[in-house]
Design a protein around this nucleic acid. Structure first.
Lengths: 117, 117
DNA sequence: GCCCTAAACCTGAATCATTCAAGTAAAGGA
DNA sequence: TCCTTTACTTGAATGATTCAGGTTTAGGGC
């Protein structure tokens, strides 16, 4: 939890490495288990941009969204475009009970853009 | 293309099966290659809800969104909540050049909901 | 008609994140 | 002290996707 909170949309191997530095030795499996538990408990949010491994973040509860860079894969937080309890109301829910919205904006981050104009 | 258009958010194996029925024999690889090409050309849209294989759809250009059922995995189209050229404007783009927004609403579909109330 | 290049397609093996399985050690409660 | 649960371990399996050749098919130029 501390590691995820300190980091920024870390993937599992990175978390594993960081936790190992902190603790000495942990198996990758233990990290997966822990992340699952924390996620199930609602303490961690999991995001999975297509084509890249899953990432975890500690900012949870507010439903904010994510900017993902097509070139370097960086993930950045964005607040919700529509306001307060937002995005949970598509025009026509087709009878679905909607629990959560997952919004990813795809684009190019400032760094990558300045390097490849 | 015809198969994807006829179907409804099909995954690759399903497309493979359907194409094989139509043509006689195709390798899975050929299907992957074809889908990639069509996707690169912008004729097909690829969606990848976390935890499930990729799905393709022919409805492209308008940026509509998707409802995914947590129980059965069904994918349903929804029109964009905010209107015309939508969702492409988060409050603060943090310098990103935004090209596309990917919105997935997670919930329970009418069928599953009526079966497990 | 023939050659040559490019495209489409095949089979088979590799990759990589994630999960499953089963066993061991440690901790807590009765 | 015994028993059950939890945390963690190692090692193997899964499954979607991709890579890596090799082979056929189809046109275009001469």
């Amino acid at each position: 939890m501390r590691t995820v909170r300190a980091g920024d949309h870390l993937d599992v191997v990175t978390i594993h490495r960081a936790v190992r530095e902190r603790v000495g030795h942990v198996s990758l499996q233990a990290v997966y288990d822990g992340l699952h538990a924390l996620h199930r408990a609602g303490l961690l949010r999991k995001i999975e941009p297509m084509g890249s491994p899953a990432r975890y973040e500690a900012r949870v509860g507010d439903n904010h969204h994510h900017l993902v860079c097509r070139m370097c894969g960086t993930v950045t937080d964005v607040d919700c475009a529509t306001g307060e309890a937002p995005c949970l109301d598509p025009v026509d829910a087709a009878g679905f009970l909607i629990e959560e919205a997952d919004v990813i904006y795809w684009g190019v981050c400032p760094d990558c853009h300045s390097q490849n104009p």
